[in-house]
Computed example of a mutant assay.
Amino acid sequence: MKRLFPAPLLSIALFVLWLLLNLSVSPGNLLLAAALAIFAPVLMAPLRPQHAHVRRPLVVARLIGRVGIDVIQSNFHVAIGVLRARQRPPRSAFVHIPLDLRDAHGLAALSMITTVVPGTVWSELALDRSVLLLHVFDLEDEASFIEHFKHTYEHPLMEIFE
Rank of each mutant, 00 (worst) to 15 (best):
H53A: 13
N75C: 13
D141I: 07
Q73I: 13
H155S: 06
G81D: 09
R91P: 02
V71G: 10
A35S: 14
P156G: 08
L4P: 01
R102S: 05
A79G: 13
P41I: 04
G81R: 02
L20N: 07
L99H: 11
F15K: 00
L107C: 01
T115H: 05
F94P: 00
P118N: 11
H135W: 04
T120S: 15
S123W: 10
L31G: 06
A126V: 08
D141F: 02
I146P: 10
L58M: 11
G28W: 13
G106D: 04
H151D: 14
I80A: 13
M1P: 01
D128S: 09
V25F: 14
S144C: 06
F161A: 05
V131H: 07
E162C: 11
P46M: 00
M158I: 15
P90C: 10
D100S: 15
E124F: 12
E147I: 00
L14Y: 10
E142G: 06
W122V: 05
L63H: 02
F15S: 02
Q87C: 13
R62F: 09
V78I: 12
R48H: 05
R48S: 06
P8Q: 08
H105T: 08
I72S: 04
E147G: 03
L30V: 07
T115N: 00
T115K: 00
R91Y: 07
L58I: 08
L30R: 03
A33D: 08
F76W: 14
V78R: 08
A61V: 14
L20F: 11
R84Q: 15
R88S: 15
P8M: 03
A7T: 07
I146A: 01
G106S: 04
D138Q: 09
P49Q: 01
R84V: 06
L99F: 14
L157W: 04
A13M: 14
D70E: 15
P46K: 01
H105F: 15
L58C: 00
V67Y: 07
L83A: 15
A108H: 05
F161T: 04
V95G: 12
F149G: 01
L132D: 06
Y153T: 02
I12T: 13
I146V: 14
V131R: 01
V60P: 00
F76G: 10
R129K: 15
R84G: 11
A33F: 05
F76V: 15
